[in-house]
Design a protein around this nucleic acid. Structure first.
Lengths: 222, 222
DNA sequence: CCATTTTTGTTGTTAATCCAACCGAAATGT
DNA sequence: ACATTTCGGTTGGATTAACAACAAAAATGG
């Protein structure tokens, strides 16, 4: 086993908490680790879970099976990512995915109730932990809402412009760099890479945008 | 002004809090209401905000302007909906939308810091309020993630089947009712209604699904 | 510097979606 | 029961995207 505390330090959930407090905190939260071998299933789709999982080492896949048994990978998560936090914090929900160990992995489980409820000794880190959790959930909301805004557009052109305008806004400038290459951008907008390239060329030819590599400029409409 | 407390009772943020405590709570949170006339702008896109808004009466629109000045309505919110909660709870973010009063409206503003930080008199409702906020954000996460799962699919057929399979899962049955009519379902999946209808007919003809009105059945593949 | 790999753009074909228009069935209101 | 409105399905033509295959450009690794 690796040093768990090093992973915790990197986790947004434990941001701003003194690493000297980690040992006491783990005890207070009743956190426990479990090791899984490559190929093992950690939780099954539909399970009712009450603990948040934090990947300490290894690599997990969140997979979703359709009603006929075909499975697809929803996400890959690696230290210090969490899983199941939305379902657990949202209450009354069952896991929408199965969680598999793609490599030998170690997972730290934390009972949400013991985060959310002040303990008898009212440890100092509780409030911070809760604020961290709120922040994590809220930021994920913002990211998803932004992506949704782009993806719900009907054409590649609109999706792309929606994305680029958001980037321009964030950079407070009509010229900016984007953090994706073409394939990644296509995946993010869920369109074909070549179709995206073609659309970009057309927009450039029409003088609506300009770009070289990852640097973009928004020009006038028409 | 209407009875604010009646609205608060209906708000998930204040679920489980004794309505007798509302007056003291409002004082403790430093909550304050403000009235807006139809057409007034409540906040501008890009504003840095620290208070959550809760619609007490009236009707607001969240609108987004593109870089060339065209605006589109992102959402309509009515009592007892909140706005700006993700940006405020996520910290360091600026409002991604402008908020306009479409009718004469009243908004209750609540400083997030005063929710998240225990007050000197450590009121009993603070922990409940925080857990409610976590639950709201987490449930929104789950809803958005589910929708994302469907919308990222490349074809109408895949989007539809992804949605129907999720419904089947939630009902633990291959036969179930959906809460949308055709237009609403098309909007949710962000596709054309008529194209959706056509695809549904094809899937029915091929024996993959069956339906009448809002009642659906998933049959065998092929 | 050269060879290799990765990334990006282009093109033509095929397939899917949009869009507008229309019709019939069902629901609604009087 | 009748008129009216809403809703769902269908159709055909225009538009758009996917897909596959390839070429050019850029990055990478000796």
């Amino acid at each position: 086993m690796k040093n768990i505390f090093a992973v915790l330090c990197a986790s947004p959930l434990f941001a701003g908490i003194n690493s000297g407090d980690f040992a006491a905190m783990m005890a207070c939260l009743g956190a426990h680790t479990k090791a899984y071998e490559k190929g093992e299933t950690i939780c099954f789709e539909g399970d009712t879970v009450s603990e948040i999982g934090l990947v300490v080492s290894g690599r997990l896949h969140l997979v979703k099976g359709d009603i006929w048994g075909n499975v697809s990978i929803v996400n890959e998560i690696t230290p210090p990512d969490m899983f199941a936090e939305a379902v657990v914090c949202g209450g009354l929900g069952r896991l929408p995915v199965s969680v598999l160990a793609k490599e030998n992995s170690e997972v730290l489980f934390i009972d949400y109730q013991r985060i959310a409820t002040a303990c008898a000794s009212s440890c100092a880190f509780h409030p911070k932990l809760i604020r961290n959790m709120i922040q994590i959930l809220a930021q994920k909301n913002i990211l998803m809402a932004a992506k949704m805004e782009h993806i719900t557009k009907r054409s590649i052109k609109e999706k792309l412009l929606s994305y680029l305008m958001e980037q321009a806004r964030q950079n407070s400038s009509k010229a900016f760099d984007i953090p994706f290459n073409r394939q990644e951008l296509a995946d993010y907008l869920s369109v074909e890479r070549s179709a995206l390239s073609a659309e970009m060329s057309r927009l450039k030819a029409r003088g609506i945008i300009d770009y070289q590599k990852n640097h973009f400029k928004l020009l006038k409409e028409n």
